[in-house]
Design a protein around this nucleic acid. Structure first.
Lengths: 194, 194
DNA sequence: GGACACATGTAACAAGTTACATGATTGG
DNA sequence: CCAATCATGTAACTTGTTACATGTGTCC
């Protein structure tokens, strides 16, 4: 299970289920997401298996927190997963499927509007990644000056940027083509599409 | 559920569970995948709901095939899903997570080898997409000459190409940076990493 | 007192994976 | 006869989602 290993990775610093949940929303949304209702049982399961240990701490504001930390055994499982080759699992991109079948609608303006929405979504996802990259550069200097951990975090961030920019570029290309088709249809008499 | 709608989309032409399974492996692998053990019950469920109808046909080679076709009601559900805005669902990219945590390993050559494997995988996924694009161009001519259905199929294909090329570009960038670090470490005395 | 963020969890359900069962037909 | 491909499916399990329950502490 990937989630377990991702949680192990995030638990390099001891943390709580609540906090890990927020990290998924705020920092990891471009490559993974998990609901807290999935995180809490996962942490419990891993503790029962001996991959984590936990203790309680009073919260500064709110009820008692349950803090988890990886054990040596947990770390072993993380390392094993990392060494076990890249897990390029089954991709599921509903929006590509949707684009594929959008021809069914016989409605270019509708197709166009959908692609514009996609663009807006990804544009807004891009901003926080670019912000993080800028922060990293300001705080830690040039790429070659990053320590090992930050270097890898930076690499993952770059993948997010590459992916999002590629999607936005696709949107721009597709929007242009759709607009061209809509203009062509407006100039032509009805029923002679070609 | 997205799978249902994707199957509805694929069933513009009547088809069987077996054939749809092959289509996922051969044509849709860059944006969706489903096992046949998931497809068969899904088709049955949709038929029970009235979205599909089915009949049996003798196979040219092998046992009797069960052919499914969308009903008017099924088509309505597809259209509804298509009009319901782009479904930019939760992305799950295990390999980005892995890259993120690869720093744990303290082993740049291992990190490098993993990124090289990713590159090889995506490079090999790129080939069939490029082939399909070339075929489309040869058989149907320029982009502006594609009919509505092919235009959208082509757009989906382009998304696959953009995404894969972005991933490969990321690999190249990352491989170069990792190689630089490995070279730097070789020239330096042990324990003075900076 | 009410809204909000903090904090942990359970239950019911939906979706997806792995392993297996069954059997026809073709080609070597 | 054996392996491969065609063809449909079930069972057991894992993973992920949605909805809900419960309660604390802070600020207005």
């Amino acid at each position: 299970m990937s989630l377990d290993h991702i949680l192990l990775g995030m638990l390099r610093q001891p943390s709580t289920g609540y906090e890990l949940g927020r990290q998924f929303s705020e920092r990891a949304q471009h490559f993974w997401f998990a609901e807290r209702s999935q995180i809490y049982p996962a942490l419990k399961r891993m503790r029962d298996r001996g991959w984590l240990e936990s203790w309680e701490e009073p919260s500064e504001r709110g009820p008692t927190r349950k803090v988890y930390e990886t054990t040596a055994e947990g770390r072993e499982h993380l390392v094993e997963w990392l060494r076990d080759g890249p897990h390029i699992g089954n991709v599921r991109l509903g929006f590509v499927a949707q684009t594929f079948f959008l021809g069914e609608l016989d409605d270019y303006p509708e197709s166009l509007s959908q692609v514009r929405k996609m663009r807006a979504t990804w544009e807004s996802e891009l901003a926080p990644l670019e912000f993080t990259q800028r922060m990293m550069r300001e705080e830690h200097g040039e790429d070659s000056e990053l320590d090992r951990e930050l270097f890898h975090a930076h690499a993952a961030l770059r993948m997010g940027l590459h992916s999002l920019r590629a999607r936005i570029a696709w949107c721009d290309e597709t929007i242009e083509r759709m607009e061209k088709r809509i203009r062509a249809a407006e100039l032509e008499p009805v029923g002679t599409e070609g």
